[in-house]
């Protein structure tokens, strides 16, 4: 787990931060804080440690507190370490109507963890989340940037097994997002 005192963005990420900051008028670069936090989260092991947030503050030339207060407000930012794949199962009305609780129970049993916990091998973290806008294709779960919809137990098994054998970290900024911003 990365927990160095000083974290540095890679040169590519710094260039990307610069590009994002250019979208806003002169002096309004603070607007970049959310996109840059997303970059930090994917670059620094899927979560935002204090040094990671400090790196964001340094990149944007704003005070660290301005980053902390934002990071703690939004639910997509992890302030604690997570597994390589965070499984986010939607649990609000439409998904619940279509069996989201069964999906959660199935994943809990399969991975031997409860909602909010990380599996012993560090591969998966299970989270239940509020409506992800996939109500017509419920039940659903999000892993990284990918939506997995119309779930059944068998489908969940296949998806999780695939992620496990792949073994790679999944983040919201997957899908060549970083290269094209």
């Amino acid at each position: 787990m990365v927990n160095n005192k000083n974290l540095q963005f890679s040169p590519e990420s710094l260039a990307l931060c610069k590009k994002i900051m250019d979208r806003y008028p002169e002096g309004k670069h603070k607007s970049a804080v959310i996109p840059v936090l997303h970059i930090a989260q994917s670059e620094f092991d899927g979560w935002l440690s204090v040094p990671a947030m400090d790196a964001v503050a340094a990149a944007l030339n704003i005070k660290p507190i301005e980053v902390y207060e934002v990071a703690s407000f939004y639910s997509m930012f992890n302030l604690r370490p997570v597994g390589k794949c965070t499984i986010e199962v939607c649990r609000t009305s439409s998904c619940w109507l279509m069996g989201a609780e069964d999906i959660v129970a199935h994943i809990e049993k399969k991975l031997g963890i409860k909602d909010g916990q990380t599996s012993a091998d560090g591969m998966f973290t299970l989270k239940t989340v509020e409506c992800l806008g996939s109500c017509g294709t419920a039940p659903m779960m999000q892993i990284g940037a990918s939506y997995h919809e119309n779930l059944t137990f068998e489908k969940v098994d296949t998806i999780l097994d695939n992620y496990k054998s792949n073994g790679k970290r999944k983040t919201y900024t997957d899908l060549d997002y970083k290269n094209t911003l």
């Binding site: 309004k28 607007s31 959310i34 207060e69 934002v70 939004y74 639910s75 930012f77």
Partner: peptide
């Protein structure tokens, strides 16, 4: 501009706050 998971940012003034990086 991407948000980061907050229903409240659908309210227009909260959205503007969020767009300003708050």
């Amino acid at each position: 501009q991407v948000g980061a998971g907050a229903y409240i940012c659908g309210e227009e003034t909260a959205l503007l706050e969020s767009l300003e990086g708050k």
